[in-house]
Design a protein around this nucleic acid. Structure first.
Length: 438
RNA sequence: CGGGGUGUAGCGCAGCCUGGUAGCGCACUUGCUUUGGGAGCAAGGGGUCCCCAGUUCGAAUCUGGGCACCCCGACCA
C-alpha cells in the first residue's frame, strides 16, 4: 500500500475524550472513529489489525476441532424466555420491537440460539461431541462505556459452544479450549494467565478468565512468578489426547485477580509473588445442563434414555484484544505491533520523494517486499522526514526501512526495529534478505 | 444509576463572569524558500458558536428546557 493513496487520517494531538493509551493511539493512528458512545467505526488501519487477530483466533479454533458457523446479531426474545434470561439480563440487553410488534433483541451472547440450533438437529449420542463457534458483533448496553473499544457497547467476539454426552467429555473439551486459548494469546505476542473465575450471569462451576499482562491494565492481578515462564504448547499439540496435564500445570500455582485474591496465600509466596496489572481477553465456562435442561436439548444415550447435553461456552474479546495488545505493547511515540498482528509487515520511508535514486530504490524495495508477501506500507508522500518518522513510529509497524539520499551515496539504506529502536545500515538487498527471513 | 464536567473550524483550545455579530495553535489550499526526527515566510479557504424557547434594540455570552459526549463511583468481555 502506498501511503499517498491509503486512507489514514492520523492525528497529531490527543483527542480530549481519550483517557487511556490504547484509545489515544487508536484514534491518533487512524484506526477507529467514534460513532456514538461505545460504538466505533473501524478505519482501514484498525480493520487490518482486527482481521489479523480474528485470523489467529480462527486458526486456533479450527486446529482444536472447533467448527465455524455464523449466527445473526438480532435474536428473537422467545428463546431467551425459554432459558429464563429474558428477564434476568436487565437493561444491558438492547431490546427491539419489529414492525409486527414482535420482541427482538440485539444479542449480547448466543447460548440460547446455539442451543436451539443444536436441539433441532442432533438426536443421538453418536453425534457428540460437537464444538461450534462464530465470530460476530455483540451488543451490551453498558451503563458507562469507556476506554474506547476496550469497554465499548458494540464489540466483536469469538464465542464457542460445546456439546458433550457426559461430564468427562465436557471436561476434556474444556481442557482443549483452555490450551487453544494459551496458544491463541501467545501467538499474538501476549503473556496470558488463566485464573479461576466466577461464572457470572451465565452460571456454572468450572470457569477460567484469561488475563493478559499490561502495565496499564484495568485490574490488579497476583500470581506466582513461575507462571510467567510456563511453556505454551507448540504447533504439534495433539488435541485428540486429553490436555489435562497442561491444564493441571497452568492451574497448579496461585493466580488471582484483585477481586478474588487471598492475602494469606500471597503472604506465603513471599518473593515468589508477582503483582501486576491485567486485561481480561478470554473467558471459558463449563455450565453443564443449565441451558440444555431449560431448552430441552437432549440426545438419546446408548441405553436409549433421553439425556440433556453437557455444555460449555468459550469467549474471546476480539475487538478488545486490539486495544489490549496496544496496552501491552507501546511507548511514548506510539504503538509497537507484535509481528503476527501488525497491519503491515514493514514500512518504507522515502526521505526525498521526487529524488530519482530514492524513488527507484523505494519502488524496487516496495515491489519485491510486496511479491514476497510482506505487505509493506510505502510512505511515498511529499512530506518532511520528521513527519514520516513520527507517523511511522505512531502506527507501529515492526520494521522501518529508511531510504534517503545521504545513505544512498554509499549504496546504503537503514533498517530500524520498532520494538528495540535498533538501526542498522545495509544494502537494499541485505534488507530484503533480512525481512524475508523474519 | 448516583456525583461532577464539557459542547465554539477537521483536532486542541480561548472568548462567556462584565451582551455589540467570533479568535488562537495545529491541520487544509496557493506561492517561494527549505529538506535525515512533527520547517520558515506570505497570501487564502473553512464556523447553524449542540438544539429549542425566552429576555433584550442586539445573545457564543443572560434565563429555562432538552440532547450529546467525557470523568469518578457502582456494574461488566
Amino acid at each position: 500500500m502506498r501511503m499517498s493513496e491509503f486512507f489514514l487520517p492520523t492525528l497529531k494531538e490527543d483527542p480530549s475524550e481519550a483517557q487511556i493509551v490504547s484509545h489515544r493511539f487508536m484514534l491518533r493512528a487512524g484506526m477507529i472513529r467514534q460513532s456514538s458512545a461505545g460504538i466505533y467505526s473501524w478505519l482501514p488501519m484498525g480493520l487490518r489489525v482486527l482481521k489479523k487477530i480474528e485470523g489467529i483466533v480462527r486458526q486456533e479454533q479450527d486446529r482444536a476441532g472447533c467448527q465455524e458457523l455464523l449466527m445473526p446479531t438480532i435474536q428473537s426474545a422467545d428463546i431467551w424466555r425459554e432459558s429464563g434470561r429474558y428477564d434476568d439480563y436487565g437493561k444491558e440487553m438492547l431490546r427491539i420491537t419489529d414492525r409486527h410488534d414482535r420482541e427482538m433483541l440485539y444479542g449480547p451472547t448466543n447460548e440460547e440460539l446455539i442451543t436451539e440450533i443444536f436441539r433441532e438437529s442432533v438426536r443421538s449420542y453418536k453425534d457428540l461431541p460437537k464444538l461450534l463457534y462464530h465470530i460476530q458483533w455483540k451488543f451490551r448496553d453498558e451503563v458507562r462505556p469507556r476506554f474506547g473499544v476496550m469497554r465499548g457497547r458494540e464489540f466483536l467476539m469469538k464465542d464457542s459452544y460445546s456439546f458433550d454426552l457426559d461430564f468427562a467429555g465436557a471436561k476434556q473439551t474444556y481442557n482443549k479450549m483452555f490450551v487453544s486459548y494459551l496458544r491463541t494469546f501467545s501467538r499474538m505476542g501476549l503473556k496470558a494467565i488463566p485464573m479461576a473465575a466466577d461464572s457470572g450471569p451465565i452460571g456454572g462451576d468450572m470457569s477460567h478468565e484469561f488475563l493478559i499482562l499490561a502495565d496499564t491494565g484495568e485490574s490488579e492481578v497476583f500470581c506466582h512468578r513461575d507462571i510467567l515462564s510456563f511453556d505454551v504448547p507448540g504447533d504439534d499439540v495433539d488435541y485428540r489426547i486429553d490436555q489435562q496435564p497442561v491444564v493441571d500445570k497452568w492451574t497448579s500455582l496461585y493466580a488471582a485477580t484483585d477481586e478474588k485474591h487471598n492475602a494469606a496465600r500471597e503472604e506465603e509466596l513471599g518473593e515468589e509473588l508477582v503483582a501486576a496489572r491485567g486485561i481480561e481477553v478470554g473467558h471459558i465456562f463449563y455450565f453443564g445442563t443449565k441451558y440444555s435442561k431449560a431448552m430441552n436439548a437432549v440426545v438419546a444415550s446408548p441405553d436409549g434414555q433421553e439425556i440433556p447435553v453437557e455444555m460449555g461456552s468459550y469467549g474471546v474479546g476480539v475487538s478488545r484484544l486490539v486495544a489490549g495488545i496496544i496496552e501491552a505493547s507501546h511507548d511514548d511515540d506510539g504503538i509497537i505491533w507484535p509481528e503476527p498482528v501488525a497491519p503491515f509487515g514493514a514500512g518504507i520511508i522515502n526521505l526525498r520523494a521526487g529524488d530519482a535514486l530514492c524513488d527507484t530504490t523505494c519502488e524496487d524495495l516496495y515491489s519485491k517486499l510486496s511479491s514476497a508477501g510482506l505487505d509493506p506500507l510505502y510512505d511515498d508522500r511529499d512530506e518532511r522526514a520528521g513527519v514520516k518518522f513520527a507517523n511511522m513510529d505512531l502506527i507501529g509497524l515492526p520494521w522501518q526501512v529508511v531510504v534517503g539520499p545521504r545513505g544512498l551515496e554509499n549504496g546504503m539504506v537503514e533498517i530500524k526495529s520498532r520494538a528495540t529502536g535498533d538501526k542498522q545500515e545495509m544494502t537494499p538487498d541485505a534488507v530484503l534478505n533480512k525481512l524475508m527471513a523474519v
